[in-house]
Each structure stands twice: as structure tokens, then as C-alpha cells.
């Protein structure tokens, strides 16, 4: 699938823009869609549902051992305790990273992604390079993200081919003893919950 930054695509994109506008006009006039509902759908995924949700889940698991147990045993209800649930997260499994095992999530067939905790997937997650190589050359893919995994660490790839949605519980960074849940959540990046990255180092926080 093509990128977004090629000059020759601009005319094609404006053609698409016109087509979408025409489509929305027709569907609205026919009474099939309510533009106010469209606005709310967009606002929800642009402003409310995003990786900040997942970061709160991770920070809670890092600070509350009982919560961590519930999350790893059955993630869907544990996540619902924080009021995150629903579409594209009906059946969630949390994957625990350890010094021995690093987990990474992909959808080789389309773009399956745990929306309630991570929001909508980034372009690279849906792109051919990631979908093709994550399952055959995961360490090479991690290098594309600037991550070099220890050769002693096993790497475990989860291809989301059904309606089970996976997200990664990364390891809590050293040097964060006594940190509040809120401060810890600032260390949790989207990529660390996909497994294509690691949490921020405490020194990286301003």
C-alpha cells in the first residue's frame, strides 16, 4: 500500500477527497448516515481512544500486583475495570515481556489491532513492510525501529488472524521505584505495547 508523501499522489488524493465528499452527500440525502454520528465517531478515535488508555493499563499493572495477575489471567475484564472496552477489543489478551521473552504483535492479513487500548493503528502497522517481515525477520524489523534485542532473548510474534486482540505488557524500566501510576504511564509508548519498541527511559521524561 502506498505512502502519503509522494508528490504524484496529490492529484489522486484530491480525486479521492471529492469521491468521499460525494459519497457522504448521497448517503446523507438517502438517510443512510447521520453526519453528526460521523463527527462523533471521528472525535472519539481522534481525541479519546488512543494509546494513553493502554499506558494507564500498563502503569496500573506495574504498580498493583493483584491487577497485573488479573490482567494476565483475563485481560478483557481487567481492562474494562478502567472503562476501556468494545469494538476491536472484544477478546483481549495481554502478553507479558520478560528478560527471557519479547513479544511483538502483527496482523499479516489486514490491520487487526486492539482499538480500546491503543486506538487506531499507525500507518506503518498497516503497511506491507511490517506485515510481511514481522513474521520472518522480527529482529530486522526491530532494527528499523532502532531497537536491538539481546541475542539471549527469545522473540515471540503473534499474528492476529482471528478476533483475539493482543497487546504487550512491557517491562517496567529500572530506576522508577516509588513512581506514581500517572508518571509511569508517561513512559509507556504505543510501540512498547505493540512490541515494536520499548518504554521510555526515565531520563527521557522532561
Amino acid at each position: 500500500m502506498s505512502g502519503h508523501d509522494h508528490d504524484h499522489e496529490h492529484s489522486e488524493l484530491s480525486e479521492t477527497e471529492l469521491r468521499v465528499r460525494a459519497l457522504e452527500t448521497v448517503l446523507t440525502e438517502k438517510g443512510y448516515v447521520d453526519p453528526a454520528a460521523l463527527d462523533l465517531l471521528i472525535e472519539t478515535y481522534e481525541k479519546k481512544v488512543g494509546p494513553r488508555n493502554g499506558a494507564r493499563v500498563v502503569a496500573r499493572a506495574w504498580t498493583d500486583p493483584e491487577y497485573r495477575k488479573r490482567l494476565l489471567a483475563d485481560a478483557t475484564p481487567a481492562i474494562a475495570e478502567l472503562n476501556y472496552a468494545g469494538r476491536q477489543g472484544e477478546h483481549i489478551i495481554a502478553l507479558e515481556n520478560t528478560p527471557k521473552t519479547h513479544n511483538m504483535v502483527v496482523c499479516t492479513l489486514c490491520s487487526c489491532y486492539p482499538w480500546p487500548v491503543l486506538g487506531l493503528p499507525p500507518v506503518w502497522y498497516k503497511s506491507a513492510p511490517y506485515r510481511s517481515r514481522a513474521v520472518s525477520d522480527p529482529r530486522g524489523v526491530l532494527r528499523d525501529f532502532g531497537v536491538e534485542l539481546s541475542p539471549d532473548t527469545d522473540i515471540r510474534i503473534w499474528d492476529s488472524t482471528a478476533e483475539i486482540r493482543y497487546f504487550v505488557l512491557p517491562m517496567r524500566p529500572a530506576g522508577t521505584d516509588g513512581w506514581s501510576e500517572e508518571r509511569l504511564a508517561d513512559l509507556v509508548t504505543r510501540d512498547s505495547m505493540i512490541g515494536s519498541g520499548l518504554p521510555k527511559h526515565p531520563n527521557e521524561l522532561g
Partner: peptide, 23 residues
């Protein structure tokens, strides 16, 4: 080719993407 992550990527890259998603 290589994976190309986009730093500080927006949720949508064009107005039409928002509408196509919601439609």
C-alpha cells in the same frame, strides 16, 4: 523494504480519511 515509522504520527492524514473511516 524497511518499515518506516512516522514520528508523532497523526490519527488521520487527510480530512477525507476521517470521513471514509466514519462512513
Amino acid at each position: 523494504g524497511p518499515v518506516q515509522p512516522e514520528p508523532n504520527e497523526p490519527v488521520f492524514h487527510a480530512a477525507w480519511e476521517r470521513r471514509a473511516f466514519a462512513l
